[in-house]
Design a protein around this nucleic acid. Structure first.
Lengths: 361, 361
DNA sequence: TTGCGCATCCAAAGCGCTTTGGGGAAGGCG
DNA sequence: CGCCTTCCCCAAAGCGCTTTGGATGCGCAA
């Protein structure tokens, strides 16, 4: 069933049927109702290829993901993708997933836009000065970023308040009496890692503290990395009494490292991780349950889909900026430093580690 | 730059340019070279929408994934997707990801095919009698299944030899002297779960054994589920001495359960899991390293992409069937049952559990 | 010379939709 | 009563490609 047939059935011109369907004003209400009714009855759906050709719009939004053989593809990415797909499925658009070698990423954007294959993009995991933003802006392609960057061009984004989240998490640990807190963070080039580090440093600075050397790490966020880094730090006399981790996967490794060394999480070592709500690994089922800064990344994907569609339909990018605050979920992985249970929050840390840290005030 | 302009530049007709580009025989070699050269020089790419409209082919392959809010989306699915995307990116086709409520899945296939939006599908996680196969066959839509079913219609598939893999894993445990082996499996409706159970049962039967009651579980494959199930089984006098798990995520839970109860994996309890090579959770970094039946699911996704493209171009489904054998990787999570270290393989299990099991022979 | 087959090429007709540029009828206004 | 709006509606022209159904010219056998 196509437009022509539908129009013939109704005894109206194709033009009018098309306009009725697309909500143009210059069609009588009675006619419009007739058309809509017939379209429903015959289960008519406009041919997307024809519409694309006629309008020049692709009816597609795309998300690129950079892959190299055997390289880690982040599960966080796929959670975002799941939310995005859920949103897009509610529309008439398609969601196109494109793998691209990292080297050719910008070139791929250019090709897709110039060929008119895509109406808009979602950018994930932005770096501090992400070249994709300038490129897509120059190409005139609508896009929404998951996260922010130092780019000064106006662009649409949805981000969580990473800085505030990690500042609060750090402050909680400090309030409990910790003074030596390690930060296991993601790749230093990524914006969220920078923001979290800033929050962490700000909270420390607020107490006149600063991180001991080697307390901040930047690496891919896997269980293995978390294990190795925590293990290295814990395996010395001057070990940190608490960890902040940018992912529950890292936290998983921290737990293993602590266990290896006979340390108990929630007593000898405190841990707080950022939780993107990966459905296959839940913080509440950790042993002991893992305290987190929580913000389901899938929900962000869904919302980003909505924003992208608005952006494509012409909404100004400056009007499409959202910063979500993050919940801090307290669980048993957090306690005062060993020997301080119930002690005054501002006292110095115990546990045989009297390092060169400045005292709390 | 479009066909018409390109043709004008060359002083040739659109028809000939089109035919030259598409490899038709009735164009002189000299002309074809000219056209190809010009196309390259002007960086000409045919407009996909126009081509779609003219040919009726969509230039798109799709994979559906069923989502319900807050429901687990399997990380295995995304690994498959990553491989598939990698393959499709090497072609001129698009990969469309469509979320769909499970109830409406068949309806969604129907819609996509009838609207001509999709040329072919990848089906993942087939059930024993998966209705999608009959539906898509009836619709005349090409597809490739990741896995097999009991369906008798001819269809293209790529599967790993789950039965053989789990038979071998089970046999290994039996050879070491285990007689009470539990199987933590996926949803019983899924084909791979059935196949693995068959392999497991066959290996037991080969020694005149059969699983003790309650030794087989079927549930979503998460850390939490693995924990609860292993914990329940281990927390009795008559506990199994070994576990077979259908996912490393389940195995993660088994490890935690064992630890909780003061049991050592690789001594008190042996564990073998199927490893799809999820990049963020590696069996070799488990503590102790986890023995596995290994088959990288991403590689399967890549190959399925190739097969689907062949299928779309008309290759008979009967010619597109692959069954991959699975590697069995021995690691420290496996040992003879406690008290039997170095003992005779066929002796009965020790550890206070002298259940109603039949003796090994 | 004529006729035929072959190798090349081309004009034009779609594919199914949107959009342009009116056109006719009804109603309001001077 | 004539003219101008306003409201609806429509024919037809694309969008950029593929494909059909010839047309042309040449070599070669009859």
């Amino acid at each position: 069933m196509n437009l022509k047939e539908l129009a013939a059935h109704l005894g109206i011109s194709q033009t009018t049927v098309s306009r009725a369907l697309n909500g143009y004003p210059d069609v009588a209400e009675a006619t419009r109702r007739q058309v809509l009714e017939a379209a429903r009855r015959f289960n008519y759906r406009p041919n997307p290829a024809a519409r694309r050709l006629a309008t020049g719009r692709a009816g597609t939004v795309a998300i690129l993901f950079p892959v190299e053989r055997n390289l880690l593809v982040d599960p966080h990415f796929f959670e975002l993708l799941a939310g995005l797909a859920e949103m897009i499925a509610r529309t008439e658009m398609e969601l196109s997933l494109r793998a691209t070698p990292p080297r050719e990423e910008l070139e791929t954007y250019r090709r897709l836009v110039n060929a008119g294959r895509v109406d808009g993009f979602v950018l994930s995991s932005p770096t501090l000065r992400d070249p994709r933003i300038a490129e897509l802006t120059a190409l005139g392609a609508p896009f929404v970023v998951h996260g922010r960057t130092q780019e000064t061009l106006p662009y649409a984004y949805l981000d969580i308040d990473n800085e505030d989240a990690f500042a609060r998490a750090t402050a909680l640990l400090l309030d409990l009496g910790h003074t030596d807190v390690a930060l296991l963070n993601g790749d230093a080039a990524l914006s969220f890692a920078r923001d979290r580090e800033q929050g962490y440093r700000a909270a420390l600075a607020g107490r006149g503290l600063s991180p001991a050397p080697g307390r901040i790490t930047n690496a891919p966020m896997t269980e293995e990395v978390g294990y190795r880094q925590a293990r290295a730090m814990l395996d010395t006399a001057e070990r940190p009494t608490a960890f902040l981790a940018s992912s529950v996967l890292l936290a998983l490794g921290v737990y293993r490292a602590a266990r290896d060394l006979g340390l108990a999480v929630g007593r000898d070592v405190s841990v707080i991780a950022h939780d993107d709500a990966l459905p296959f690994l839940k913080a509440e089922t950790f042993d002991p349950p893992l305290a987190t800064t929580l913000s389901p990344i899938r929900r962000a994907g869904y919302r980003i889909g909505e924003m992208l569609i608005e952006r494509i339909s012409g909404v100004d990018p400056k009007a499409l900026r959202e910063l979500w605050t993050v919940d801090l979920v307290f669980r048993a992985s957090v306690a005062p430093p060993h020997g301080l249970r119930g002690g005054a929050p501002a006292a110095r840390a115990a546990g045989g580690d009297a390092g060169a840290r400045r005292p709390a005030r």
